[in-house]
Amino acid sequence: MTENSNTDKSRRQFLGSAAVAAGMAVAPGVILHQTASAKPADEAISSKVRWGMLIDTAKCANGCDACVSACDEEHNLGGGRSETDAQWIRKVELRDKQTGHSLTMPLLCQHCEFPPCVDVCPTGASFRREDGIVLVDKHICIGCRYCMMACPYKARSFIHEDLHDQKPYSPRGKGTVESCTFCVHRVDRDETPACVEACDAEGHNAMIFGDMNNPDSEISRQLASYSSSQIRGDLGLNTGVRYRGI
């Protein structure tokens, strides 16, 4: 940000490499739901975009946990202590007590527009990015866990022990709280989250990720055409994750 010439040079380089990148992105089986070009690295995110996810429970296969494994792999979660291990996304099995109808679906941070975890955080470590992604700034998280008390979706995990071999793009550490980031490191490169990629790779296509503010995006078109709902919609949190079929 100090020298303009540097920035200009890098913009040009970026444009040159963007075509290459696009080619490479498709090659390994990555499906790009958005065709919009990635934002330049030096540009701040804006509220013009609201990232969201639509999960079609009819397409979510029983017994499949590809999204969960992909998340664990992407962020190096897990560890072997089930009560204290972090889980950013989990498969939930539901059964209607009256009718017996049952279904399965992934549950993750709902990236609310009005997130209770952000309201209660004393230091502001829990925050919502301009583009709707709810994150924890672990640099200022003191580990009080009040956000975990406040989250209606039980989406957050506290790190109960020392971690090793974290992924460079996904720093995580003992004594702080974390949750699904919508794979923000991928989103900032205009890629889809690991779980969505994995679901598509399995051929289920039950998860759609995209910009809910862009009427031409796949997610917006689907949301506009078919009915969908929010979990605990009664709380009025305007979640960024929507479900079909519940």
Partner: peptide, 25 residues
């Protein structure tokens, strides 16, 4: 009991005033 008691100074310098915890400090 905090996860990061070493960051008490953060709790004293950064506030989110919508949080009842921050008021309580």
């Amino acid at each position: 009991d905090l996860g990061r008691p070493d960051r008490l100074i953060v709790a004293m310098t950064k506030y989110n005033f919508k949080s009842i915890f921050a008021w309580n400090i």
